[in-house]
């Protein structure tokens, strides 16, 4: 399973890099979300994939009994997904505003803040 997921992560990163190298801001953002999903999967796989029982603590005990799945990577991934979602929403709105006020999504044409030197 680890191998399959590793290959998947590789494909995600490769397509993300391909998309992010484009001049179009929207493509860049799509690449970004693929990359952040690849990162989430990395955390998930790095936390070991074990067919363990759910990590539930029985009544009256302090620790779960027997072998249980590691819940921490899932907690990390969950946090990362939420944060990534928020940031991506912001970035999308920013791209929309950029299109409205600058009239382009081509990053090469975004030269308002750093105008080219007039020779």
């Amino acid at each position: 399973m680890e191998q399959v997921l590793s290959v998947l992560i590789g494909i995600l990163v490769a397509s993300a890099v391909y998309l992010m190298l484009a001049r179009n801001l929207l493509r860049f953002l799509f690449g970004l979300i693929l990359l952040s999903n690849a990162a989430n999967l990395t955390i998930f796989v790095a936390g070991r994939l074990t067919p363990g029982a759910p990590p539930l603590v029985p009544d009256g005990l302090d620790a779960p009994v027997g072998a249980v799945a590691n819940a921490l990577p899932q907690a990390l991934v969950l946090t990362a997904i939420v944060i990534g979602f928020g940031l991506f929403a912001f970035a999308l709105i920013l791209a929309f505003r950029a299109y409205q006020s600058l009239g382009t999504l081509n990053t090469d044409e975004m030269r308002v803040a750093e105008p080219e030197e007039i020779k």
């Binding site: 992010m20 801001l25 970004l32 940031l87 912001f90 950029a98 990053t107 030269r111 803040a113």
Partner: peptide, 19 residues
């Protein structure tokens, strides 16, 4: 315009570093 333009680059590169 200027802030949005600077913002796009700031946001994009910082998000990559975050990931």
């Amino acid at each position: 315009k200027e802030q949005i333009d600077g913002g796009v680059k700031y946001v994009a590169l910082n998000l990559i570093s975050t990931i």
